[in-house]
Amino acid sequence: MNALTHSSKFATMLNVFGRVAALAVIFIGFGFIVPDFAFFTAGNVENILMQSAVYAMCALGATMVIITAGIDLSAGSMIALAMVITAMILNVDGSQGPMVETYPTLWPIVAIAGGMLAGTCVGLTNGLLITSLRLVPFIVTLGTLQAIRGLAKGVADNQEISPPTNWLYHQLMFPVQGRTFNWQIVPWGVWATLVAALFAAALMRYTRLGRWIYAVGSNADTARLCGVPVLRTKIMVYAMAGAFAGLAGVLEFSKLNLGQPTGAVMYELYVIAACVIGGTSLMGGVGSIFGSVIGALIIGTLNAGAQQAGWPKWVQEIVIGAIIILAIALDQLRHRRKA
């Protein structure tokens, strides 16, 4: 019996190792394509980590959704809405001038909470629509993909919102690697993503809700038979996906200190690709948080590499698309051979 426990642990390790190896190959590959070895600099690695952090943060929730055999297409729009709401809260004027200047430490925290709450509300709406109207998640979130983008534009009055400068901009996603080494290594936003990932992974692995999420995705009828509150579990999952998308919106906002209602377009597709590259099955029941984080890093590296290789935009797009398909095909092939 011990033999299998070990061999299945070994298989899991091999799974993780394979993905890390793929990430390394892509990174090193672009390192040689990009002129002057500029890809290997600390500043560039930091840049990739910052961009990947946005995808990864959002992918934490998306992984849970996909494990329940659902899908969330509204992630990009939720990120845009969260950016706008965060910016608007930072712009609020109090009696003694801008609130962010009266409470320089506290007020940005309120803004973070606001962005996260905005995402959570949208996610909750997704979950309620899916469960109460018994519609497939693809259709509901295809609808909210449009509707929330519209809402973000309407709330922002079709403008980019530029609040006064604040610590979100200086600390959360501001590069720390200049000429000299900095012990913070990466911006706080990247650390925050790592902490959120550990939280999400623990939730999936060590809590009842986590077991329920896997069970609902693996076989919803069995889950119901076993007394699992299937609908409530789904609502929770979409709400959490909204919360993580909201946090991803805060990160995206912090990069430029700008609330862009037209930002984060197509991010939902990067995020879904990150999950799938990370080994999450669109059929549900299978997947891991760490796989998705590695998937997000792969997507981030691909984007940065293709951009810096100096290829025209259309070549970048074709190359990234091809690599995503290749990565997933290789993974499937490996699984099939194992079976």
């Binding site: 896997y214 069970a215 693996s218 076989n219 069995t222 038979l225 076993c226 699992v228």
Partner: peptide, 17 residues
């Protein structure tokens, strides 16, 4: 289709309820 979540482990299926 109902009794068991086939993709999950024996332990998960046994303890789910």
């Amino acid at each position: 289709t109902e009794g068991l979540a086939l993709g999950l482990s024996i332990a998960d299926n046994t303890t789910l309820s």
